[in-house]
């Protein structure tokens, strides 16, 4: 290929830097993308809103006593009977959409993060087991992973919920079942690479206990790719939960997530009352996009393949 590479310039020399810790370098590399920084700030605001919802929301949307059915389906900016302004309108129950979204975010984020953490625990353990045990255990686990990944997540989750029934816990279980495989594959991949490194062999020669090797040596090295996959999977889990709830198979009506809020507005949209579906959708979109922006940059920064 010297025909096309002749005269190609060598890679630029990085500028001399001050004392660099790995963490500091990670922070500065991450901050190199304005877009990713924007995503991070956005995501922090969203989390803050969700956490503080009971204190900052104009209304408690679950407290039926606070709802006024006479205020149902009011346009954004309307003033209700009790003098409260509904900035994003109300739904058919007279629930303030803004408050509904803030509380809905709590459910969506909890389910998304909860399922991601659980799936990560299950998947990482199985992936580590596959990498460390090898042989039949490995091929059995990886077969399961392949099977899981070849089947669309939405269908698998749908079927699990169809047999288990609705409920936040069931949604989390379904999401864990469809997502563990990503973590397992990731951990196994990087653990296999690390296992062949000399320092692991050295640790084994020293007869260090297995758990020590795994937790002190293998796992920390699997962490970067795990973080990347985890970030992306949180976004995916939130989107999937919303979809399942929209289909009426996710969270129960008493604790509406963003997806269920959107579903509730579906029938009113045909009569032009767009806001009941529109604003929760925007909140969902902004949440997913902000996580993906962060995840994209994390992948670029943490992916060792992209580094020279």
């Amino acid at each position: 290929m010297s025909t096309t590479t002749a005269g190609a310039p060598p890679a630029a020399v990085p500028p001399a830097a001050r004392v660099e810790t790995p963490f500091r370098r990670f922070v500065s590399e991450f901050a190199a993308s304005r877009l990713a920084l924007f995503g991070l700030v956005l995501f922090c605001i969203i989390v803050l809103v969700a956490v503080l919802a009971p204190w900052i929301a104009p209304q408690n949307p679950y407290d039926l006593a606070q709802l006024d059915i006479m205020d149902g389906r009011l346009e954004p900016g309307s003033v209700g009977g009790s003098g409260i302004t509904y900035w994003l309108g109300t739904d058919d129950q007279g629930r303030d959409m803004l408050s509904g979204i803030m509380y809905g975010l709590r459910i969506s984020l909890t389910v998304g993060a909860g399922s991601a953490i659980l799936a990560c625990l299950v998947g990482a353990s199985l992936g580590m087991l596959a990498a460390y045990a090898g042989g039949r255990t490995d091929s059995l686990i990886m077969r399961l992973v392949d099977l899981q990944l070849s089947f669309p997540a939405i269908l698998a989750a749908l079927m699990i919920l169809a047999f288990l029934g609705k409920g936040i816990l069931n949604v989390v279980i379904a999401l864990v079942v469809v997502e563990w495989a990503y973590y397992a594959r990731t951990v196994r991949g990087s653990a296999l690479v690390e296992r062949r490194r000399e320092y692991i062999e050295a640790a084994q020669c020293l007869a260090l206990p297995t758990h020590r090797i795994i937790f002190r040596h293998l796992l920390p090295n699997c962490l970067p790719p795990l973080i990347v996959v985890g970030t992306m999977q949180v976004a995916r889990a939130i989107a999937l939960e919303a979809t399942l709830s929209f289909l009426g198979l996710g969270v129960p009506i008493t604790e509406p997530s963003l997806g269920l809020l959107i579903a509730n507005g579906y029938e009113y949209m045909l009569s032009g009352k767009y806001w009941i579906s529109f604003y929760p959708g925007i909140a969902l979109l902004v949440t997913i996009v902000s996580i993906n922006l962060v995840g994209d940059q994390l992948r670029d920064v943490l992916n060792p393949r992209l580094k020279k």
Partner: peptide, 14 residues
């Protein structure tokens, strides 16, 4: 003269 104007500088390939 054929030069490559790269970010790292001018490469005077020819």
């Amino acid at each position: 003269r054929t030069h490559f104007l790269t970010r790292a500088g001018v490469v005077k390939a020819v």
